[in-house]
């Protein structure tokens, strides 16, 4: 009986170790595969040129249009989402307190977080049809901003939550209004957390393909106007992988590697930044 119990303990410990290896192993396998298949076809020309005639048949050119396009899309969307979400986060921490309304807003944000990006895409596309906007940078920005909004709000919410309540209480005791406390105490204290939230949302935005598929379209030119279609990295990967030419598929791997590097860098910088800037914050 005792041996059986011990056996069970060891068996499950072994299974846990095995699952951990599977989880980490699959992650490493993905990153390793991207490096192994992407690096050989990555070149300077790919990063600095726009597609030339016959690019999708395997001739000269690069994916600069997609890189710049993605940065514009995600940058614009993050800016828009930031403008919308900062007031919400401030509301959650100064005006709402622990009320029922605050719980409801948090619940709504969590639920929004779970909505698939293709649904955001379909929603934004419908709105664009109604206001007469065609696939464009602006359309993509609207769709991505919806997608990023809950991520930023929840990130900021966490950042504000780390601030000791004594700080805002001290500010109230000195006669500051809630608005003044929010802008001069809370925002300053939470800068690191806010920046982390913004970077993470930017990373989500730059990697999302399904929501920009209808709304931003695709083009071989660099983005020049808010009302024209714009290319994006995930779609560049997707379209190039869909062609029947091995040379173009190789470039899809390289584009995928570029995207992975951008996203991972953002994520690592965000984490490093939050730890670094935390040192200057009163706890």
């Amino acid at each position: 009986m005792k041996r059986l119990r011990r056996l069970e303990e060891y068996l499950f410990r072994f299974l846990m170790g095995l699952s951990l290896v599977i989880v980490l192993g699959s992650l490493m396998l993905i990153l390793g595969t991207m490096l192994w298949r992407g690096l050989p076809s990555l070149s300077l020309a790919m990063l600095t040129q726009v597609p030339k005639g016959g690019y999708y048949l395997g001739e000269e050119g690069g994916i600069l249009n997609a890189i710049v396009g993605s940065l514009c899309l995600a940058g614009g969307a993050t800016l828009l989402a930031l403008l919308l979400s900062l007031p919400v986060a401030i509301y959650l921490h100064t005006y709402a307190g622990c009320s029922r309304a605050a719980h409801l807003v948090r619940l709504a944000m969590d639920v929004l977080w779970g909505i698939p990006s293709i649904v955001y895409g379909a929603f934004a596309f419908t709105i664009m049809l109604w206001i007469g906007l065609r696939a464009s940078l602006l359309g993509g920005i609207i769709a991505l901003a919806c997608l990023e909004l809950p991520i930023i709000v929840r990130g900021m919410d966490e950042a504000f939550r780390l601030i000791p309540s004594a700080l805002s209480e001290a500010s109230y005791a000195l006669g500051a209004t809630r608005f003044e406390t929010a802008t001069r105490i809370l925002l300053r204290q939470a800068t690191a957390g806010l920046l982390t939230a913004v970077l993470l949302a930017f990373g989500r935005g730059i990697g999302d393909a399904a929501s920009v598929l209808f709304t931003a379209g695709y083009t071989d030119r660099l983005p020049d106007s808010l009302l024209r279609p714009v290319a994006s990295l995930p779609l560049a990967v997707f379209f190039q992988l869909g062609t029947p030419f091995p040379a173009v598929q190789q470039r899809a791997y390289a584009a995928g590697l570029v995207l992975t590097v951008i996203v991972l860098t953002l994520s690592v910088v965000a984490r490093w930044l939050s730890r670094r800037l935390m040192h200057h914050v009163v706890r």
Binding site: V23, L24, T33
Partner: peptide, 24 residues
């Protein structure tokens, strides 16, 4: 070590998972 790795992997774009699926 493990926790940040798992958090980072949450941010990998779905297209990358797609490519990996096609390759492997």
């Amino acid at each position: 070590v493990v926790k940040p790795l798992i958090d980072v992997s949450a941010g990998i774009p779905s297209v990358i998972f797609g490519i990996w699926g096609v390759i492997m």
